[in-house]
Amino acid sequence: MDQILPPSPSEAPTFADDFSTGLDGEKWIAHYLPQWTVPERSAARYEIVETGLQLRIESDQLDWRTEDAPLRVSNVQTAMFSGPLGSARGTHRHRSDGLEVRTETPLRLLFAPTSGRIDVTVAASTDDGCMLAAWLVGIEHLSELDAGEICIFEIDADAVSTTTRARTGIKAHGDPRLETDMAEVVLPFDASGSHTWTVIWGDGETVIGCEGIVLRRIPQCPVYPVMLLIDLFEIGTPSGAYPKTAVVSDVRAWG
């Protein structure tokens, strides 16, 4: 029998945005991990539409880094941090092939909970080569070991149909206190329509669900400040029609 997620808390969320007034610079940084690249490559392409924040990949958009081409991304995130120019210190050192700070970014903690609950309502992309994802990632400003990730979801465009496959779980990255535990789940609906993901973490456990149903219950969680990233990627050689899009309609968090 499916487990039901607990209802959202009755108290007002500590962080909330439905994007009805635009993209709030006091809540979101519209760049993807800007410390590892340069601003013209990290900047998000987006539009505010009736249903929320439309993340876009456009035909003239640059690759996030030349070394990673072809890879383009439009992302919003709730914090940023780096060490000095040329250093290897910064949030989400997610690869081992020479990431170094190209744009020094001062510490900004717009929303950086250590535990709590987040509900994210999105509509995934079905455009060629795209992936929509939402992650909670350790900021690493207190320690380089605070590098773990809760992958709320990763949805490839070619996995979206009358049912949808998604990846979800924990990625340890540089945190020896965590073990990577990712799994594929099947959603019984077309995820290009609006739907809500939930993550609840703290007290040694991470619970991830969608549309009110528990998908994963994992007996571990990060214990340090994390930031929320929501991003649309185009992975692989550019193809198909542009712009490629996904929509974030609502984010509510308690923590």
Score class of each variant (00 low, 15 high):
Ile213Cys: 09
His195Pro: 09
Gly169Asn: 04
Val137Ala: 14
His195Glu: 09
Asp146Phe: 02
Gly209Arg: 01
Asp181Ser: 15
Val214Pro: 03
Arg165Ser: 14
Glu179Asp: 12
Met182Pro: 08
Arg165Leu: 14
Arg165Ile: 11
Ala147His: 13
Lys171Tyr: 13
Phe153Pro: 08
Glu211Cys: 13
Arg217Ile: 08
Gly174His: 11
Pro176Phe: 01
Val214Trp: 07
Ala172Met: 05
Glu179His: 14
Leu178Cys: 01
Val186Trp: 10
Trp197Val: 04
Val160Leu: 02
Ile208Arg: 02
Ile208Gln: 01
Gly193Leu: 10
Pro219Ile: 07
Ala191Pro: 02
Ile218Asn: 07
Ser161Asn: 14
Arg216Pro: 04
Glu140Thr: 15
Arg216Cys: 07
Ala191Cys: 02
Phe153Met: 09
Thr168Asp: 03
Glu184Ser: 10
Val214Glu: 15
Ile200Val: 15
Gly174Ser: 08
Val223Ala: 12
Trp197Leu: 06
Phe189Pro: 07
Ile213Asn: 08
Asp175His: 03
Thr198His: 03
Val223Lys: 10
Lys171Gly: 08
Arg177Cys: 12
Met182Lys: 11
Pro222His: 05
Ile152Leu: 05
Asp190Asn: 13
Glu144Cys: 04
Gln220Ala: 02
Leu178Gly: 00
Val207Arg: 13
Gly193Trp: 11
Thr168Gln: 05
Trp201Tyr: 11
Ile155Val: 12
Lys171Gln: 12
Ser192Thr: 07
Glu179Trp: 09
Phe153Asn: 06
Thr180Arg: 06
Ile218Arg: 04
Leu136Lys: 01
Val207Asn: 08
Thr162Glu: 15
Val207Thr: 15
Leu145Met: 12
Glu179Met: 12
Val223Glu: 14
Glu205Ser: 11
Val199Cys: 09
Ile155Glu: 05
Ile200Arg: 13
Thr180Met: 06
Asp146Met: 01
Ile170Tyr: 00
Leu145Arg: 14
Val207Ile: 15
Ile150Phe: 04
Leu145Asn: 14
His195Trp: 09
Thr198Met: 06
Thr163Gln: 14
Asp181Pro: 11
Asp203Met: 09
Gly209Asp: 00
Val186Asn: 12
His141Arg: 03
Trp201Thr: 13
Thr162Met: 14
Gly148Trp: 01
Gly204Phe: 07
Asp146Ser: 01
Ser192Lys: 07
Arg167Ala: 11
Thr180Ser: 13
Thr198Arg: 14
Gly204Pro: 08
Ser194Arg: 10
Val199Met: 08
Leu145Glu: 15
Thr206Gln: 04
Cys151Thr: 15
Glu144Ser: 11
Arg177Ala: 15
Glu149Val: 08
Pro219Cys: 03
Glu149Ile: 08
Gly169Val: 03
